[in-house]
């Protein structure tokens, strides 16, 4: 009798644990897909990347296709050399595409948005996105606005 209740108790315990694990894995968190898949590396040079961090997402049309894996200063051009890794299957970036750094919402994190260009030729691995736009620095715009308001 005691053996039965022990077995039941342990079984219950393990089942609860398993259910919790499944619930957490599937309903409460996202498995990190990008780790498994083949990633292609491209780069883009920006004049200003203020606030962009490594691991920030890269999006095309709002859909996450990869992430930022490296940010370095190019010593010769004084621009920020940003390395992006894109998921292989989603990788069709025309050579004349544009890379911009946008903010999620108003105060959110920065991410890289790629706007596809019109070329028929696509970037090869290790290629570089030539057209880039810098981060819009909110404080500068606010400063200008305040100045203009005061002027009037």
């Amino acid at each position: 009798m005691q053996q039965r209740s022990i077995e039941f108790g342990v079984g219950l315990f393990l089942i609860l644990g398993l259910l919790s694990l499944l619930f957490i894995a599937f309903d409460a968190s996202e498995l990190d897909y990008s780790e498994g898949q083949n990633m292609v590396q491209v780069s883009a040079d920006f004049d200003n990347i203020a606030g962009l961090r490594v691991r920030a997402p890269v999006r095309i049309a709002g859909v996450r296709v990869g992430e930022v894996t490296g940010i370095q200063l190019d010593q010769h051009s004084y621009r920020a050399h940003v390395v992006l890794k894109i998921i292989q299957q989603l990788y069709h970036i025309p050579v004349d595409s544009e890379a911009r750094i946008l903010t999620e919402g108003l105060l959110g994190a920065k991410y890289v948005s790629i706007i596809p260009g019109l070329s028929e030729r696509f970037l090869k691995a290790e290629g570089s996105i030539q057209r880039t736009a810098s981060v819009m620095v909110l404080e500068n715009l606010i400063g200008k606005l305040i100045f203009n308001m005061n002027k009037k």
């Binding site: 004049d47 010769h76 051009s77 004084y78 621009r79 030539q130 880039t132």
Partner: peptide, 15 residues
């Protein structure tokens, strides 16, 4: 002025 090697670039941002 543009810094760095101009010959590598096909697009430049002039400030």
């Amino acid at each position: 002025p543009i810094r760095g090697r101009l010959s590598d670039l096909s697009v430049v941002n002039v400030h």
